[in-house]
Amino acid sequence: MEFLVASSIGLLTACGVYMLLRGRTFPVVIGLSLLSYAVNVFLFAMGRLQVDLPPIIRDTATGYTDPIPQALVLTAIVISFGMTALIVVLALRTYLEIGNDHVDGLSGGPTDTGEQK
């Protein structure tokens, strides 16, 4: 399981970083989302991987899983969700006002319909 989790975090991060470095806003937004998923799973794994264990210590419990990373992940999910919403709206607004979707806002490249601007 460790290998599976670790390699999936690695794959998500690699894809996220690749997309983040693209020149258009849409892949960048996707990249940021992938990166935030990777970070969420990573944070979760920082409490060590445990299966079938309660997050609360009881007298009868034989073990427990660390609840704090789970709380941290919740916070991180809420924040990254809000941020993704914001950046999608901003990307749309930028596209509508500037007329292209390059992250650096350079005009002169081909537009989406293929015609030269």
């Binding site: 960048v28 940021l32 941020m83 950046i87 990307a91 607004r93 930028t94 500037i98 650096d104 806002g105």
Partner: peptide, 10 residues
């Protein structure tokens, strides 16, 4: 401002 804002946020 929108262009610069986009980069700032990313």
């Amino acid at each position: 401002r929108l262009k610069a804002g986009m980069q700032y946020i990313v």
